[in-house]
Computed example of a mutant assay.
Amino acid sequence: MKVVYFLVTILALASSFASAYDPSPLQDFCVGINDPKDGVFVNGKFCKDPALVKAEDFFKHVEPGSTSNPLGSKVTPVTVEQLFGLNTLGISLARIDFAPKGLNPPHTHPRATEILIVLEGTLYVGFVTSNNANGGNRLFTKVLNKGNVFVFPIGLIHFQLNVGSGNAVAIAGLSSQNPGVITIANALFKASPPISQEVLTKALQVDKSIIDNLLKKSWYDNN
Score class of each variant (00 low, 15 high):
Lys216Asp: 11
Gly135Gln: 05
Thr183Pro: 00
Ala14Gln: 14
Gly121Glu: 00
Asn186Tyr: 01
Val53Cys: 00
Leu161Ser: 02
Pro106Ile: 04
Arg95Val: 09
Pro64Ser: 06
Gly166Ala: 10
Ser192Lys: 15
Ile195His: 11
Asp38His: 12
Asn137Thr: 08
Ile96Gln: 05
Arg111Lys: 10
Lys142Asn: 14
Phe98Glu: 02
Lys101Pro: 04
Ser130Met: 13
His107Met: 05
Lys190Asp: 10
Val149Gln: 11
Ala51Cys: 11
Gln177Glu: 13
Asp35Gln: 06
Asn69Gln: 05
Ala168Ile: 00
Leu11Glu: 12
Lys54Gln: 14
His158Asn: 03
Asn131Pro: 11
Asn43Phe: 14
Ser73Ala: 09
Thr129Tyr: 12
Asn223Gln: 15
Val4Pro: 07
Thr108Phe: 04
Tyr220Asp: 03
Asn145Phe: 14
Thr9Asp: 15
Glu198Cys: 07
Arg95Pro: 02
Gly135Asn: 11
Arg111Cys: 01
Asp221Phe: 02
Pro100Gln: 15
Ser165Tyr: 13
Glu63Thr: 14
Gly90Cys: 07
Leu103Ser: 09
His61Tyr: 15
Ala94Asp: 05
Ala55Met: 12
Val163Ser: 03
Gly90Ser: 12
Gln160Phe: 08
Pro50His: 13
Thr201Val: 09
Asn104Phe: 04
Ile184His: 09
Thr201Ser: 10
Gln27Pro: 03
Asp35Lys: 08
Leu93Val: 07
Asp97Gly: 08
Ser24Cys: 03
Ala187Thr: 09
Ile210Gln: 14
Glu114Asn: 08
Asp57Glu: 13
Lys146Ser: 06
Pro25Met: 06
Ser176Met: 03
Arg138Ile: 08
Ile154Ser: 08
Asp212Arg: 07
Pro70Asp: 00
Asn186Thr: 00
Val62His: 02
Lys74Ser: 06
Val80Leu: 03
Asn167Ala: 07
Ser16Asp: 12
His158Thr: 03
Leu7Lys: 11
Leu123Thr: 05
Pro194Glu: 06
Arg111Ser: 01
Pro105Arg: 00
Pro64Cys: 11
Gly136Tyr: 11
Gly39Lys: 03
Gly102Asp: 00
Ala133Pro: 01
Ser92His: 00
Ile96Cys: 00
Val40Trp: 08
Gly147Lys: 13
Ala14Ile: 13
Phe17Glu: 04
Asp97Arg: 05
Gly90Asn: 00
Lys208Val: 13
Asp97Ile: 06
Lys208Leu: 08
Gln197Asp: 08
Leu7Ser: 12
Glu81Trp: 07
Asp221Gln: 06
Ile33Cys: 06
Lys74Ala: 03
Leu188Ile: 06
Gly65Trp: 05
Lys142Pro: 03
Lys190Thr: 00
Leu7Glu: 07
Pro36Asn: 10
Ala191Ile: 13
Val53Gln: 03
Gly121Ser: 04
Thr141Ile: 08
Ser175Glu: 00
Lys101Thr: 12
Ala94Met: 05
Ile33His: 03
Leu119Gln: 10
Lys2Ala: 15
Leu144Lys: 02
Pro100Met: 04
Glu120Val: 02
